[in-house]
Amino acid sequence: MFVADDPTVAVSELAAAITGTPPTVLDVRWRLTGSPGRTDYVAGHLPGAVFVDLDTELCGPPGAGGRHPLPEPAELQSALRAAGVRTGHPVVVYDAGDGAAAARAWWTLRWAGHRPTWVLDGGYPAWLAAGLPVTAEVPTPPPGDITVRPGGLPVLDADAAGRLPTAGGLLIDVRAPERFRGEREPVDPVAGHIPGAVNLPTTQHLDGTGRLRDADTVRDRFAEVGLRPDDPVAAYCGSGVTAAHTVLALHRAGRTDAALYVGSWSEWITDPDRPVQR
């Protein structure tokens, strides 16, 4: 239906697809603070799209594992089946435009063993900008039959993330530079970063319209922070959401082996014995 080795799909491609045999479309709009994404969904969404809540359905409850830990497989399977996700049937996820929540949904589906899955490039704003129709009608999808099989994408725990920079790998902190440096921390109670990590904000992989930059440009950005073709590579952020967008960008750059440290900084700092660099 779409390009198999590209993690994103253009608005024009999705618009053409939903007039034929449509993919399953998931609305995962989400905010770190403020009103929940479901409010936006109820006001208007892509035709046929089903809302899935990032906090409560695609992630586990916050705690020692961070603010957005991995979900329990059985609970994730139930949520995805309720949204109509079927084994082997294409899924397209979209968010409010920056791609972070959609990337985490894409990553979670891929981790759960679902193929094929794409992110709508530019999200809901790109759909609106193209003058395409939206609706407030909430569909009732037929039940899906997906079986969640964890392990479809690589994951690092805290110990593995801490070892990576000293083991010849590249650990990328995708947060804003001032958070990486420990000068400002608006979310978590401790400022700083994991020792040995390099900083490459995931926003640098977006163009001015919220779309993912082309593969060569993305590849160049990773090379600038020291990524070599055979180096192990992983990404982390505050809670494993925006880092999933960097994993998406790494996939566009050809690094489908890129790992996500899901617990990220919000898990790292729960253990006072873990070192912090500023």
Rank of each mutant, 00 (worst) to 15 (best):
D157H: 05
T56E: 14
R184N: 11
V28H: 07
G65P: 01
G152I: 12
G66N: 09
V262E: 06
P272C: 06
A126F: 00
G122N: 01
L248D: 00
Y261I: 06
M1Y: 09
V134D: 08
E183C: 12
P62G: 10
R221C: 03
D216T: 15
V3D: 15
T246Y: 03
E13M: 12
A223S: 15
L250K: 01
L54M: 13
P154G: 13
R228T: 08
W107K: 11
G196E: 03
T203W: 06
P195G: 07
H114G: 02
G238Q: 05
E178L: 14
G168K: 06
S266E: 01
T117F: 00
R184C: 09
W106P: 05
V85H: 11
P71M: 11
V155S: 12
G238D: 03
G152A: 09
L170G: 01
A176E: 15
A235P: 00
S266F: 02
E178G: 07
V262M: 04
A235G: 05
V25M: 08
V233C: 05
A112E: 00
G34P: 12
G182F: 08
D230W: 01
S78P: 00
A43S: 10
V262P: 03
Q77T: 04
H68S: 09
E224D: 14
H205C: 08
D40K: 10
G131D: 05
G144T: 06
G84Q: 09
H205M: 14
V247K: 01
L212C: 05
G99Y: 00
L164N: 07
G168Q: 03
Y236E: 04
V134M: 08
R38E: 15
E224G: 05
R274E: 00
R81H: 08
D231A: 14
G63N: 13
F222P: 01
P61Y: 07
G88A: 15
Y124D: 14
A17F: 04
V233F: 06
V241I: 15
T140E: 13
T203A: 13
T147G: 11
V93G: 06
W118E: 01
G162Y: 03
G60A: 08
A249G: 04
D230Y: 01
D53S: 14
R163Y: 02
L54P: 00
D157Q: 10
L109A: 02
V92D: 04
T140F: 04
A82M: 07
P141G: 11
W127S: 05
A249N: 09
H193E: 02
H68I: 10
W127N: 11
D6M: 04
V138H: 08
S264F: 06
T135M: 10
D145N: 14
A158Q: 05
R149F: 07
P116H: 07
L153A: 15
A158S: 13
A258I: 06
P201G: 02
F180G: 02
V92E: 10
G122R: 00
L170T: 08
A83P: 03
R255T: 07
P22V: 09
